[in-house]
Structures are given as C-alpha cells and as structure tokens.
Amino acid sequence: LHAEARRVPAAQAREAVFGSAAQLPERQPPRHLAIQINQALHDLLCKYPSSLLFGEDVAQKGGVYTVSKGLLKAFGPRRVFNTLLDETMILGMAQGLANLGMLPIPEIQYLAYLHNAADQLRGEACSLQFFSNDQYRNPMLVRIAGLGYQKGFGGHFHNDNSIAALRDIPGLVVGCASRGDDAAMMLRTLAALAQVDGRVAVFLEPIALYMTKDLHALGDGQWLFSYPAPDQALVLGEGRVYAAEANDLVIFTYGNGVPMSLRAARAIEAELGWQVRVVDLRWLVPLNAGFIAGQAADAQRVMVVDEGRHSAGVGEGVITALVEAGFGHLPLQRVCGADTYTPLAGAAMCVLPSDNAVTSAARVLAQDH
C-alpha cells in the first residue's frame, strides 16, 4: 500500500501536465493549501488514468475556491466534468463508476451538503465490501470542503463543523489536512487505499485555510510550504508533531485547530512559561489510539482542541483513547464547538473555538494544578 502511495507518475506525463520540468510543483516556491491540493489533484489524475474528478462547478469554473482550476484543460471533459446540484447523485454515480473499474474523485462542495446524501456512503459505498465478503468493491476518494471559520459565506450551509456522521461509518477512512504539503501526501495515501484496498476515503478540506499564508503575523508567510516530491506519502494514522520535546502541555488537534493552537502555544509560553507541544492528528477516522497514547506518555497536562461540536466530536475519541491507555489521571481541558448550528457573520465566532479559548483553558490548567 505504501509503495503504491509513493509510486511516481511518469516523468514525461507530469511535465506535459504541468507545462515543463521547470514548472513542476516541487520546483516552485512554497504555496498555500488550495494551490497544493490543486497540484496534487493534477498529479493523481496523471498517475491514475482511470481516475475521474467531478462535482458541482468543478470543471470550467474550477470550483468555488479554484481548487480544481486547470484540471479540465489538462485532462479534458471525459475525466473532469460538472454534475447536477445533487449530492445523492454525485455519490451514487461515484459508486457506479467505481464498479466499472474507474477511480472516482467526487467533490462535495460543502460539508453541510453531505448530510442529505450521507447514506450513499454509510449504507451503500462502505457496505459493499462487507456484505459481498470482498467480492465487490467501489473505491473512491471523496473530497469535502468544510469546517468553520469561513468569512464571506455565512451560516450553517457554508460553515459546518459536524463530522459525527462520518465518524460512525464502518470501513471509512477520513483525513483532514491543515497545510498544503500534508494535503498532497495524504491525497496520495488515500488514493492508494482506494486503488489497492478498494477503500472508500474522505478528504476533509478546511475552507478557512485554503488561502491562509501567515501564522503569527500578517506577511510572515509561515503557513506556506513546499510541495512534497511525488514519491512522498504518509502512513495512515501518522500525525505531525510540533515541538516534540515540549511536555508541559500537549495539545491534540486537527484542521483549523492546528494554526490556532500554534499561535496560542506562543502566548501560553510567554504567559505561563510552559513549553507546548502541538499534535496535528491529520487522520480522524480511524483515530490512531497508539499514536495518541505515545504523545501523552510524557505529558504533564493535556488539551484537546476540537473545532467540531461538543457532542460526538473527534475530541471525544481522543479523550477515550487517552483514558483507555491509562492517562485519565492527566490534567485535561477540552476546547470545542458548541452544540449548535453555525450562526451568521461574527456570531459564528461565539460558538467555535478560538485562540483566546485555548489560552484561557491553559490558565484553568495552571490554576487547578
């Protein structure tokens, strides 16, 4: 599986797709998340001739956020095409195409649009291998733009932090990248899972991080990363650890929570003198309980920053993994979203985790312990 994830598309084909050897993405300056997902999709369609990318407005328009820009020109309308505005049809067609031996890469335009079609994954796509005893497979890599903090589009139809419906599906794999280089490597791994093992995979893309370039200050460029060479991929369940030696406080998080926690870590270190480790889970289903326990082994305190809702969020799974591994005695705080739909405009920030909420939770840990 990992060998397949690291398998490189033909050099000539890549150069034709990207324009020339000099224009290959790994030879370009560091880029933000949306561009690197776009580059990774070019690579995947180049690598897998049987792959098809489709969804609402993905072709001529290049997607709402330009993530699929240029794919139609590079691969043509037989492999990159628009669909009806119907998520049930998008995922149903993905199953049919997969049954015909294709590798579908459907896009669900917003996470909130998934819920009316979730049973296409739960009751149909993910159940086929199980109920056929692996006689039949319908592999696919479903891209879903979602989570909160998006500015410009208000309300719960465009800011949706409910991923409980995905966590509940047997056999599904869900990855969520917070930065561009991770996104490219995770897409390669998820595509390999589909191609080799026939898995149904979901790649959850944080809309609010698509265009993010800075981390601590305007213009610092610290959230721009170099495109990983095409032979680099991630092991399923492997997280990213920032400040691995720090153990005064270990923060487990993902998605938008990663840059948020890194900013808060700097404030916590300045105020409390703690050295803070930030752990980006990257893989949300299944959670890697062994990795989580390993990161907690030398921790003095633990925090879970989960932009999902208080009930049925990823944070519950992280805390369960910690308790079952024998770390229930550690001082713990959880920062998460409220059990509500995301309201309009600035009101959204009242129900989602924030930099200040993370820092405040650290102060509670300092007072209590």
Rank of each mutant, 00 (worst) to 15 (best):
E269M: 02
M89T: 15
Y341E: 08
E4D: 10
A217I: 03
G70M: 05
N288H: 10
M186C: 15
Q195T: 03
S20D: 15
D43P: 01
Y227F: 14
G337T: 09
L332W: 07
S51C: 08
A184T: 10
P49V: 11
F18W: 14
E205D: 12
Y48L: 08
G55I: 11
L215P: 02
A112H: 11
V58M: 11
A192T: 03
A244G: 05
T253M: 01
A299S: 02
R31S: 07
G123D: 06
A233K: 06
G123K: 07
R179S: 12
F252R: 00
Y227G: 07
V302I: 01
L141K: 08
S226Q: 14
G63A: 12
N82E: 04
A177T: 09
G239H: 06
D220S: 02
V258P: 10
G237M: 04
L97H: 09
G19P: 15
R282N: 02
N256D: 11
V67W: 01
R78C: 02
T66G: 02
G239D: 04
Q36Y: 00
Y254C: 05
R6F: 12
M211Y: 10
G294K: 07
Q367L: 08
A217M: 08
M89A: 15
R14S: 13
L204H: 11
D119E: 12
E107N: 07
D181E: 15
L262I: 03
A264R: 04
S127C: 05
Y48V: 07
P228D: 01
A3N: 08
D231Y: 01
G337A: 09
N159E: 09
A312W: 15
A243T: 02
A74D: 06
P353N: 15
L287R: 12
V335H: 04
N356S: 13
V196M: 06
I292S: 02
G315S: 13
E205T: 10
H32C: 03
H115N: 12
Y65N: 12
L190T: 04
T83I: 02
A125H: 00
G290M: 14
E26W: 14
D214F: 05
A21G: 11
L287N: 07
Q95H: 07
F54E: 06
G239V: 06
L41R: 00
E245I: 06
A16Y: 08
E316W: 12
V278K: 01
S132K: 02
G257W: 04
S68G: 01
P286E: 05
A244D: 15
H156E: 08
T189W: 10
Q129F: 01
R282C: 01
A299H: 00
G257C: 07
R27P: 12
L103A: 04
D181A: 11
Y210F: 13
M102C: 07
G101Q: 10
P331D: 14
V80T: 01
V276Y: 00
I108N: 03
L84A: 09
V278S: 01
K61T: 15
D214L: 04
P206F: 02
K213G: 12
I169F: 09
A361T: 03
G317Q: 15
E56V: 13
S132M: 00
M186W: 13
M185P: 12
V58C: 14
V173M: 09
A194M: 00
T340Q: 07
P353T: 13
G326Y: 10
Q275F: 04
Q150F: 09
F130Y: 05
H2G: 12
L365K: 00
L272H: 11
A289N: 15
